[in-house]
């Protein structure tokens, strides 16, 4: 029984990783590629690690496998965010099928300022925060 579960987990993890790789190869622009790597690859590694935990079934190993899963799930979105933002601001082009971009008009490439588009009435009553530079 446990062998079957383990095998299923391993295979589905491997398939998800393969899908991530196919996505990185096929998808048309940087941001859509990041969708494939963050989600599919993180899920694939998590499934493989659950299989490892089932295989050894000792407290120390299960704790370590769980640690790897939590670590991957915590860092994958952060890495995607920093790389995606850097790529976007450095000027990698979006795919021609992109329907909407609400970020571009709010971003100033010279000062690197990113507005929220909500400040018109908020600025009037904006009080300086404590950690604002003088």
């Amino acid at each position: 029984m446990i062998e079957v579960i383990k095998g299923t987990l391993l295979l589905s993890g491997a398939v998800f990783m393969l899908l991530a790789a196919v996505g990185v190869l096929r998808l048309p622009d940087l941001l859509t590629r990041m969708h494939a790597t963050t989600k599919a690859a993180a899920l694939g590694v998590s499934l493989v690690m659950v299989a490892v935990a089932l295989h050894f079934a000792e407290v120390a190993v299960v704790a370590r496998a769980f640690g790897v899963i939590v670590f991957i799930l915590m860092t994958a979105p952060v890495a995607a965010h920093v790389i995606g933002r850097a790529g976007y601001f450095v000027g990698s082009r979006l795919w021609s099928g992109t329907v909407k971009d609400e970020l571009r008009p709010n971003y100033d490439p010279l000062t690197h300022e990113l507005k929220s588009g909500l400040e018109t009435e908020a600025n009037a009553r904006r009080r300086p925060r404590e950690d604002d530079p003088d």
Partner: peptide, 16 residues
């Protein structure tokens, strides 16, 4: 970033 087809890119300077 980890859920349906969405990826957070950046937060605006005033965090809203």
């Amino acid at each position: 970033s980890l859920t349906p087809g969405t990826l957070s890119l950046d937060v605006s300077d005033d965090r809203r």
